[in-house]
């Protein structure tokens, strides 16, 4: 098991290096002086040219490309992500400020879609061919077809404006910042963000469950005279779970992507919203850093999924 984890980590490292390299290449090629995103813009503006040139030298900008890359990546590893062009804030500060909101939203949506999706998919498979199943299938189809932000707009109109049950957007009100205070703000974005993933998980859980139920060991389990729920849950669902978890891992990027738009719709102050305004204002250092960290998030998520499958599937765990 430990060697397995070590092996998976080792295969990730070249990937991370290549991508960080590409990101740095992007940083160098995009407009703007390389120094400009390494020091606060205020200081940059008021600096005399000689001093600037000196600084370039000291930052290694006269050095060959790979050395410059090395200086940059060492900084990133030590938490020096450079400066945002807009406002001259260190990118690390922006991350610290905005990341909790994004994580809160993504985890809430992930939790909802995983649980709801697996349960609905299982129900659909167990009642295969019935009106329930057909209804859920059509609902699932609608879920993957309607744009998330459109859902969001309709939800705002109905639940925030017309019914006035939930706030229109935002995350916190001044002075109220416990999780329970935030909860009403979280409900709508999390539900809307989870819709597409729930539908995807449901469709997949259904077919995975149907596949599991058609296996021979289900007949064996029945032949033991166990009640139907035990056959379905312990033998069917348990086996159907592995592919569903793999799918959720694969879909995580979609969730991250979705949060970019949903944060915009609900004015949720997360990384995604920051990213969109950075793209709008062509704030390249920030854009590149968000991209780099989204890749890291995806890679780590895939690692976690691998470990989870290893835990629930003995064939992987025991190394086949």
């Amino acid at each position: 098991m430990l060697t397995y984890i070590a092996h998976r980590l080792l295969t990730l490292i070249p990937m991370v290096i290549v991508i960080s390299f590409l990101i740095y290449l992007g940083l160098e090629l995009t407009p703007g002086d390389a120094v400009s995103h390494m020091i606060p813009p205020d200081a940059y503006g008021s600096m005399d040219p000689d001093r600037l040139q000196e600084l370039r030298e000291s930052l290694g900008l006269g050095q060959p490309f790979f050395v410059r890359y090395w200086i940059w990546i060492s900084g990133v590893v030590q938490g020096d992500f450079g400066y945002s062009l807009a406002g001259g804030v260190p990118i690390a500060d922006i991350f610290l400020d905005r990341l909790p909101a994004t994580l809160e939203l993504s985890f809430a949506a992930l939790l909802i879609s995983t649980i709801l999706g697996s349960i609905l998919g299982t129900i659909s498979a167990l009642t295969r061919g019935s009106a329930t199943d057909q209804g859920l299938t059509v609902v699932g189809m609608l879920g993957v077809s309607i744009p998330e932000f459109f859902f969001g707009l309709v939800a705002i109109l109905v639940f925030a404006i017309n019914l006035d049950w939930l706030p229109v957007g935002g995350r916190t009100l001044p002075g109220y910042d416990s999780f329970w205070d935030r909860l009403p703000n979280l409900v709508m974005p999390a539900l809307v963000l989870s819709i597409m993933m729930t539908a995807g998980v449901m469709r997949y859980a259904r077919s995975s469950m149907l596949d599991a139920l058609s296996r021979d060991f289900i007949r064996t389990a029945r032949s033991k005279g166990m009640p139907e729920w035990r056959v379905n849950i312990l033998h069917g669902f348990r086996v159907a779970l592995t592919p569903v978890i793999v799918l959720i891992g694969f879909r995580l990027p979609v969730l991250i992507g979705g949060s970019v738009i949903i944060e915009q719709v609900f004015q949720w102050p997360g990384i995604g919203k920051e990213f969109v305004s950075a793209v709008r204002s062509q704030d390249y250092p920030l854009v590149m850093m968000v991209a780099l960290f989204s890749v890291l998030a995806v890679l780590i998520a895939s690692l976690i999924v691998d470990l989870l499958t290893a835990i629930i599937d003995p064939r992987v765990r025991l190394g086949e």
Binding site: M15, G26, I256, G257, V260, F275, L299
Partner: peptide, 22 residues
């Protein structure tokens, strides 16, 4: 295969927006 792996390790919309910015 390696190139596609690199492309696919980005969340698609982030990569799209990154390219739009560039």
């Amino acid at each position: 295969m390696r190139v596609s792996e690199i492309f696919m390790s980005f969340p698609q919309i982030i990569l799209v927006l990154l390219l739009v910015a560039i």
